Simulated assay, not measured.
Amino acid sequence: MAEKVIENNKVSVIGEIISEFSFSHEVFGEGFYMAELSVNRLSEQADVIPLMVSERLIDVHRDLRGSTIEAIGQFRSYNRHEGVKNRLMLSVFAREIRFLEEFTDYTRTNQIFLDGYICKPPIYRKTPLGREIADLLLAVNRPYGKSDYIPCISWGRNARFASGFTVGERVRIWGRVQSREYTKKLSETECEKRVAYEVSISKLEQDAE
């Protein structure tokens, strides 16, 4: 049953490790660590994506900055408590890691598939230049009654299509994981630069059942 559930959240990213590993948490004596992975786009920009790995999967105590790896796993979320608020934290949870000596096929550096349920009404809008955008929040089930909550963004015809989705509706999404800088207003005089992570949708479909 668990293996079937995991099929609804699959991600593969290829990029360069650009930070040292830092301790995140421990489960049943197994330590999990975080690092940043720089993943190139075809546009020559790069997404910097948080990567979570087990100490049993990779030597987290070595300085692996500059190494190119392929990480295969799931895109996961958890709520971090910040004072009285919760903040949604996202990362690629690696189930497999492979070191690559050389890599040239940048068409497959960043791929994700999600099969989940709409858990908030879609937010549809147009930019000042007339570009159509729709924001979705997808709940993707995990074993043992858990769920990951994944922000997704769609464009153009996909955005128009997604704007009609209803809460509870099951949808499938293909795309890539992206990072985006934004400014968070903390008070009338104080702002903070933050990074948001989301799935940029290239294809989506409603459940046919």
Rank of each mutant, 00 (worst) to 15 (best):
E181H: 03
R62N: 15
M52W: 07
G168F: 14
A94V: 06
P121S: 15
Y149Q: 05
T68R: 13
Y106H: 15
P128V: 01
G73D: 07
L129W: 02
V171R: 03
R87T: 11
I97P: 08
A134W: 07
G168E: 08
Q178M: 09
A159T: 08
V53C: 05
V60G: 09
Y78E: 02
L100W: 06
S179F: 02
G83K: 02
D105I: 03
A159E: 10
S154F: 00
G145H: 03
F161H: 06
I153C: 09
I112E: 03
I123H: 01
R180V: 11
N141V: 04
P151C: 12
Y117V: 02
S179Y: 00
I153L: 15
F165H: 10
L51T: 08
L114K: 02
P121Q: 12
I97D: 09
M89V: 15
G175D: 10
V177S: 02
L137H: 05
F103E: 12
D105T: 04
G164V: 04
G83H: 00
E55M: 07
I173Q: 13
N110H: 08
P143E: 03
V53F: 08
E82W: 01
A94H: 08
R142V: 00
N158V: 08
L88I: 11
T104N: 12
V140H: 01
R125N: 14
R56Q: 14
V140W: 02
R56C: 08
I133C: 05
R56W: 00
S163W: 11
G175A: 14
R176E: 12
V177K: 03
T183L: 08
T109V: 11
Q111N: 05
P122A: 07
G116Q: 11
R108T: 08
F161G: 01
T166R: 03
I112P: 06
C152Q: 06
R98T: 12
R95Y: 03
F93E: 12
L90W: 05
Y106E: 14
R76Y: 13
F99K: 15
L137A: 02
I97T: 14
R125L: 03
R62L: 15
L129C: 00
E181R: 13
H61C: 04
G164Q: 13
R160H: 02
L114Q: 00
N158E: 13
D105G: 05
E101C: 04
A139H: 06
N79W: 01
C152H: 05
I150W: 07
G164R: 04
E70Q: 15
E96W: 01
A139G: 13
V53L: 09
R176C: 10
G116E: 06
K146G: 02
D135C: 04
R176H: 12
E169Y: 04
I153P: 03
I150D: 00
S54E: 06
G73L: 13
T183W: 01
A134Y: 01
Q111S: 12
